[in-house]
């Protein structure tokens, strides 16, 4: 089972963990990426290419499914305005083997960070704006 969502609204990590738990496998591993920002940042805006983002997240999930014996994968990525510290993405994997779930989840996070077509703009307290360059900062 692969479920990929690209959405503007927030998500409930507990609800996603419950969905993976419904698969009744031995292990569920998950990660929530949040947007860390400097004190002077008032708001963050995530731009994205909708079709490519959905397709790339789907490809990442399918590749994970080929690498590890996973029963379920959930990937969620937000776009649009997000407050500093807000949730940006969720990666979760369920498997019958704990190592597989953990390794797959870590791999999913790394791939999302490296490949997913999302771009981050920071709006500062004085109203000025700046785009982050690649690898300048990452969701924690």
């Amino acid at each position: 089972m692969i479920d990929v969502r690209v959405q503007s609204g927030d998500f409930d990590p507990g609800r996603q963990l419950a969905r993976l738990g419904e698969l009744k496998k031995a292990a569920v591993a998950s990660f929530v990426g949040r947007l860390e920002a400097d004190d002077g940042v008032r708001e963050l805006r995530i731009d994205h290419h909708a079709a490519l983002a959905k397709a790339e997240l789907q490809r990442i999930a399918e590749e994970a499914g080929q690498r590890w014996p996973l029963a379920g994968i959930i990937l969620i990525h937000r776009h649009g305005p997000i407050a500093p510290g807000g949730r940006a993405f969720f990666a979760g994997a369920a498997a019958g083997d704990a190592d597989a779930a953990g390794e797959a989840c870590a791999w999913l996070v790394a791939q999302i960070r490296a490949r997913a077509p999302f771009w981050r703009k920071e709006i500062l307290a004085d109203g000025s704006e700046r785009w982050l360059k690649a690898n300048e900062r990452q969701a924690s």
């Binding site: 990426g33 077509p117 981050r120």
Partner: peptide, 28 residues
Amino acid sequence: SVSGQWVRGKESLFGALEVALLPPVGVL
């Protein structure tokens, strides 16, 4: 990107009617 697929530097744009140009990724 063309039609939701990456198109890398030396790859052909043959027949593409719409091409998205994207900055480097990995910026979250």
